[in-house]
Design a protein around this nucleic acid. Sequence first.
DNA 1: TCCAATCTGTAACGACCACTACACAACGGC
DNA 2: GCCGTTGTGTAGTGGTCGTTACAGATTGGA
Lengths: 189, 189
Amino acid sequence: MSAMVGRKRGFDRDEVLDQVTRAFWRDGFQATSVADLTGTTGVNPPSLYAAFGDKRALFAEAVARYQATYGAFTARALEEEPTARQAVERILTEAAIEYTTPDRPKGCLILSSPELHDLRDQARQAFEAKIRHDVATGALPAGTDVRRLALFVAATVRGMSSLARDGATREELRDVARTALSAWPAPVA
Amino acid sequence: MSAMVGRKRGFDRDEVLDQVTRAFWRDGFQATSVADLTGTTGVNPPSLYAAFGDKRALFAEAVARYQATYGAFTARALEEEPTARQAVERILTEAAIEYTTPDRPKGCLILSSPELHDLRDQARQAFEAKIRHDVATGALPAGTDVRRLALFVAATVRGMSSLARDGATREELRDVARTALSAWPAPVA
DNA sequence: TCCAATCTGTAACGACCACTACACAACGGC
DNA sequence: GCCGTTGTGTAGTGGTCGTTACAGATTGGA
């Protein structure tokens, strides 16, 4: 065991990380200053730096927290739904809800941050894998353009997040999701 | 006529404005510093401020220039094509090209800039008007949800711009456009 | 040729940026 | 009580931000 000696931290690390996550989510990495963060959290700079490291490390941890909480619904759907069609339907439906939840920043942190290109690429690869699996099992026609379909889903989710950031309502996003789903290829009955 | 007296400007105002437009387009308003602009244009701060005003005014003029040139294809399609379907097909097809033109920033300046929410709303209203006209003339079914269809087009274009910024190819965007178009309601034959 | 007007380059302004040195407060172990 | 350790608050660091004061250069008009 470690020494566990010294003055105790005067704030809840998880709670502060959540406030930081929401700040980055709302305004982005660049537009959120450390002064903003110390203001909203009430934690002074030295304590913030001691607990999380510099601004980039804090952002990285905020993004990780976002993925594990607010943004986890996508990975959950891909894991739990049996077919790509069901997973995509659930993702788009839940995105309409998640992107417009009151008392939260609108849209998706990862889709809104230019610097998170790699995470977006991972998401697209996950879509591709799910669709490819359906083609392999015969749930989708053999000739299906896997990459194309994955890109269309990626584009739809990005479009929904962008509209949410501009103030689109939950119902409007749900309608966008339904319209997009009507472009999904007919299943092999 | 004005006096036309005094030392002449030592740079081409239009050329400099184009360079500024591309800088804002590539990096956004916040991330592009005045020092960046003086660096890329070779124009010193006092000359830049004398010619364009402060940074916000310069950005506004760059956006206006973008709308009149690189981003004009959307308004052109809405004006020139007879039906909403044809206009949207042309917009999506040309967006795939415009958003991936070599030696240019990728994607759309207006869709990438959080501060241009009003211009995006104007674009959505223009889509709506075009679609509503088709419903009125019978080119689209009477029960068509105009707002819903316009939002879907807006979402698709935003998604394509976002994908382009992340490095999607022209062909990938074209495929996204085609997939989205397959969700368009059947015309009243 | 001298003036008034306009533009240009240098060099700075105060404000904010991310970040930290330092002294002090609060803790567990002895 | 005293010590070593760790967190906290104050008050700064050097650097970059958008912006401009100022002096010199260049122009057309008188």
